[in-house]
Each structure stands twice: as structure tokens, then as C-alpha cells.
Design a protein around this nucleic acid. Structure first.
Length: 561
DNA sequence: AAATTTACCT
């Protein structure tokens, strides 16, 4: 019998819902002997990972001699040494002295893995990261391969992030001198950061000069191979004018294909210039290059994305324009796919048209196009925001039956609606269900929506429970979680607690928003908690964190006297 | 690393 991926998934999802993990493992073991490993790998094992039996899961994978690489992989191999070193470096007055004395005791050797892991933890402190890297290379018990290109690439990224592009170049020259392989990745890191900082000319110059360092390819080959990445990055950051300019100038030496034109169409769509996007679609056709489904989807998304849908007249106009693209596609022999329909369904969702949304879902099914997670999430979101939670739940069930595993984003639609209804019980019931059935685990946003709701309604105790859950899950907290929580405590005038979390977020390397600081500052001063305030200020000074000079001058004056 | 869901808050 021919078993499809689809039948596996449906079966697994069903078993997971009934918590029949043991049966599932027996099934997997049986299958592994009767079908190809590739087929097993294609299944979504993420669900298994969050059951209580990860050890069995690992053992199963070992028996297949595979590397288990599901997303959000919990850390089974703790990088204690990297944690230790980064902690020492970030929080000690004389970090390298401290490190030396404690490391010699522990006999830690600087393997490439350790250096890399430590650099990741030091990514927000470029100076420390650089010093550490140089230090690690001088250590007697470090292997010579410490200076791998991955470590260099990471350092280049860390330096560029704080706009130290000269440091990045020094590192590249060092790589060259030490015969560490520089490949396109190295330059791509630099180019991306240059573009994101707005230095497009420098990025282009870097691109046209990098062939000197890439000895395996000639200049022309480099342009042909990598130009689309430069073009894409320029477009992604909104510099489509620059992208078009360099494209027109260098056209003669490029291989013009569908991909390059699609990138440009994307760029013009991003800056909402549909006319220019269409012009490039025309140029493509003139040159005899056939647009494919991606090209049309990009254009379609440009027409639909962020288009104003209020009032209904505008909505109709957008839908007509979208339908026109659909027609054009069919005329040119390109069949609309799941993505095309998902883009359209997202418009219905934004315009709050549940009936049209469901109708379109039926139409696409009839055409034999299988909805995916994005499609379902759009429709579910539409139903939720229109208050039809029960219908949304039905669709969710249907989706699982069809072998599509929900993500936290799917669940977040429900949570958002519960938040709007101030329905704490409903939200907590769903949260419990989500934890139990382990189809997917809550994301930071899930926690943030819940936190936002609970704090707004003054349910501080519950909010703290959720906070603890979030920490245990390892999904958070992030900047927003801290901001929400601190603002919540400020609202309740619990200045001391708010201050503790403010300190904690700084320790973790998050830069608080100016508002958070201002709120806390005012609260502490008004309730005469000067000691707490000074302790906080001292900590901020140590980290050289400021919140804008005008603000400092205006508010801090009284306390300098 | 040519495309689609982007939540929370100020």
C-alpha cells in the first residue's frame, strides 16, 4: 500500500491528541523498518519533542542514525563553559584576570565550539567579544583551528551591528593574513549590515571589490553568482532606486533571469510603486523571460499588502485588481497556487469578511489546492476577529484532521479575541489545552498577549504564574514582555517590583524603552524612593545606558545637586 | 538567502 506523508501526519496528530505517545513510538519503529528514512524525516517531529518522553525520542533517532533537528530544539548539551565565560566577561571589573584565574582551575580548553558559543553570548558587547576572541587565540591550550571563518563572520557581524565597519575590514584582512577562508558569506554579512545602516554606496563598492579575496572565482563569475543577493538585500531594505540603478548599469555582465526580475518587482512593491513593478514585469516579457508563479505572487502581494480597505469601495477596488492578476496568470499559463490564495484570503481577513473568506477557501479546495498553515491561519484570524470563535475552533479541528499542524500564531488569534472580550477563563482554558496536547508550544507572543490581558485586568497573581511558565518554557521573556510587566507594576504603583524587573532586563542585555524609564523614574521620585533610584542610576551608568540628553538635562537636574 | 500569517505595547 502506498502511504503518503499526509496519512502519516493525520495519524500522528490523532495519536498525540489522545496522548498515546507509546503507541506512536511503536508505530514509528515499525515504520522505520518498512519505509524510507526520508519519508520519516519529512514528518513534523516537533510535536513529539514537547511530550514528556524526549529521551525515547532521541533514542529512536539514534537508532535511525539521524541528527534530530526540529526547530526550537531544547538544549540537551548545556554550554556551561560558554555561560560561565560570558558571565565573567560581562559582569566582572577585571574580566580577563578573573577569567584566567578561574579557567585555569577548571582546565577549560578553547575549542572552536566553545569560542563560537561564547561569542554568541557576547553579541551585544562588541568590545568584549573582540577582546575575548583575541585572548582565546593566544591561549596555549587552544587548538589552532580556533580561528575558523564562522567565528570571524560572527565577529564581523557583531562589529557591524554597532557600525564599526573599519573593525570589520580589519578582521577580513586578518582572515586573509591567517589564511582563514573568506567566502561570500563573510562579505554578505558586511554588505547586509552596510545596507541596513543606509550605506548603500559602500555596500556596492564592497561587492564589486570582494572578488580580490575570493580566489576560487574570477570577477565576472562573482557578479553572475552573487549579484542577486546584493540586489535582494537592497530591495528588502527599501533601496529599490539604488538597486534599479546598479541593475541597469551592470546588466551587460549579468545573467538576466526570472529571479532577478522578481527581486526588483518585490522592491518596487515594497515601496508601494506598483506602476514601476508592472514596468519591470513588462521588461521581463519583452526580453522573452517568462514570469513564474513567484513573480505574480510578489506583484499580487504588492497590490494587496497594506492597501487601504475602508470603506467597502476601496476593498472592492483591491479585490478587482487582485482578480485581474489572477486572470493574467491563467492567461500566461501560470496556475495560482496556495500562496496566491493565501494573499487574497489575508485581504478578506483584514477587511473582516468571514463569509467571503470561507467561500474562497471552498473554491480553492475545489480547484485541488491544498490549504496550508498560512491559509488556515488567515481564515481563523478572520473568524476570531469577527467574534466567531466557535466557527474558528471548528476550522482548527478540520485543519488538524487534514494533517496541518497549528502553530502558536494560529492559537494567538484566539488569545487576541479572548483578550478583546476580557475573557480570562476562556483564554486560560485554551492555554491549558495548548500545553496539554503539545501540537505546538506557546511562543513569546502568546505569553505577551496573555500577560497584557492579565495585567490590564489587574490579575497580577495570574500574570506572575504566566511569567514563570514563560521562563520555564525558555521562549522568553523578550523586550516586550519586560516592558509589559514593568508597565503593569507601575500602573499598580508597585515601584520596587517594577524596579527589580527593570534591573533584571538590563542584566540580560535588553535596552529598555524611554517610556519605561520615564514612568519608573517619575514613580520612584514621587514616592520618595531616592535610594532605589540611585541604585538604578548607578547600574545604568555602569552599562553606559542613557535615554536621550534633553531628557537627562531636564529631569535629572534636581538630583545632581 | 525570489513569494504568503507579524501578534504584544507606547
Amino acid at each position: 500500500m502506498y502511504l503518503t506523508n499526509f496519512s502519516f501526519k493525520t495519524c500522528f496528530n490523532a495519536l498525540l491528541i489522545f496522548d498515546s505517545v507509546v503507541v506512536l513510538f511503536q508505530g514509528l519503529c515499525y515504520l522505520s523498518s518498512s519505509c524510507s528514512i526520508e519519508m520519516l524525516v519529512r514528518l513534523d517531529f516537533r510535536s513529539l519533542f514537547f511530550t514528556q518522553t524526549p529521551v525515547h525520542f532521541l533514542r529512536f533517532f539514534c537508532s535511525l542514525q539521524l541528527q534530530p533537528t526540529p526547530p526550537e530544539l531544547p538544549q540537551f548539551e548545556p554550554s556551561n563553559d560558554a555561560d560561565l565565560i560570558s558571565q565573567l566577561l560581562l559582569h566582572h571589573h577585571n574580566p580577563f584576570h578573573a577569567m584566567e584565574s578561574s579557567l585555569q582551575l577548571n582546565g577549560i580548553s578553547f575549542t572552536p565550539f566553545l569560542v563560537h558559543q561564547t561569542l554568541i553570548r557576547l553579541k551585544n558587547s562588541s568590545k568584549v567579544a573582540l577582546s575575548f576572541f583575541h585572548y582565546s587565540q593566544t591561549q596555549p591550550n587552544s587548538s589552532t583551528s580556533t580561528s575558523t571563518s564562522t567565528a570571524f563572520n560572527l565577529l564581523i557581524d557583531i562589529s557591524c551591528k554597532v557600525r564599526q565597519f573599519d573593525v570589520a575590514w580589519q578582521l577580513i584582512i586578518q582572515m586573509d593574513q591567517k589564511s582563514v577562508k573568506t567566502d561570500f558569506t563573510t562579505f554578505y554579512v558586511l554588505i547586509r549590515r552596510l545596507i541596513s545602516a543606509g550605506f548603500t554606496r559602500q555596500a556596492i563598492r564592497t561587492f564589486s571589490e570582494m572578488h580580490v579575496f575570493l580566489d576560487q572565482y574570477g570577477e565576472d563569475e562573482v557578479w553572475k553568482l552573487y549579484f542577486s543577493y546584493l540586489l535582494d538585500t537592497l530591495c528588502k531594505y527599501g533601496y529599490v532606486k539604488v538597486a534599479t540603478e546598479v541593475f541597469n548599469k551592470e546588466k551587460w555582465r549579468l545573467e538576466l533571469n526570472c529571479k532577478v526580475y522578481t527581486i526588483l518587482i518585490y522592491g518596487w512593491c515594497k515601496v508601494k510603486n506598483i506602476e514601476m513593478a508592472r514596468r519591470f514585469l513588462g521588461e521581463m516579457l519583452d526580453k522573452g523571460i517568462d514570469p513564474n508563479v513567484v513573480s505574480y505572487n510578489v506583484l499580487l502581494n504588492g497590490i494587496c499588502r497594506r492597501a487601504s480597505l475602508h470603506p467597502d469601495g476601496r476593498f472592492d477596488k483591491v479585490i478587482r485588481a487582485a482578480e485581474k492578476v489572477f486572470e493574467e496568470m491563467t492567461e500566461r499559463g501560470v496556475e495560482p497556487d496556495v500562496t496566491s490564495y493565501s494573499i487574497l484570503l489575508h485581504v478578506y481577513s483584514r477587511a473582516h469578511k468571514p463569509e467571503l473568506s470561507l467561500e474562497k477557501l471552498r473554491i480553492m479546495r475545489r480547484k485541488g489546492i491544498c490549504p496550508n498553515i498560512v491559509t488556515y491561519t488567515s481564515v481563523i484570524k478572520c473568524l476570531c476577529t469577527c467574534g466567531r470563535i466557535e466557527d474558528a475552533e471548528l476550522l482548527l479541528e478540520q485543519m488538524v484532521t487534514n494533517g496541518v499542524t497549528p502553530t502558536s500564531r494560529t492559537y494567538n488569534c484566539f488569545f487576541k479575541e479572548f483578550k478583546g472580550r476580557k475573557d480570562v477563563d476562556g483564554a486560560l482554558r485554551l492555554y491549558g489545552k495548548m500545553k496539554e496536547c503539545s501540537l505546538c508550544s506557546p511562543s513569546v507572543s502568546t505569553f505577551n498577549i496573555l500577560l497584557g490581558m492579565l495585567l490590564k485586568l489587574g490579575r497580577i497573581g495570574l500574570a506572575r504564574d504566566i511569567w514563570d511558565d514563560m521562563k520555564d518554557s525558555g521562549a522568553g521573556p523578550d523586550l516586550d514582555s519586560y516592558t509589559l510587566l514593568i508597565h503593569g507594576f507601575c500602573e499598580k504603583q508597585k515601584w520596587k517590583t517594577a524596579c527589580e524587573f527593570f534591573m533584571e532586563m538590563i542584566e540580560k542585555g535588553f535596552l529598555p524603552q524611554k517610556v519605561t524609564f520615564e514612568t519608573l523614574y517619575r514613580g520612584l521620585i514621587q514616592s520618595n524612593m531616592l535610594r532605589t533610584w540611585r541604585r538604578l542610576k548607578k547600574r545604568l551608568d555602569e552599562e553606559s545606558i542613557t535615554f536621550g540628553s534633553e531628557f537627562e538635562n531636564y529631569h535629572l537636574k534636581p538630583y545632581r545637586r
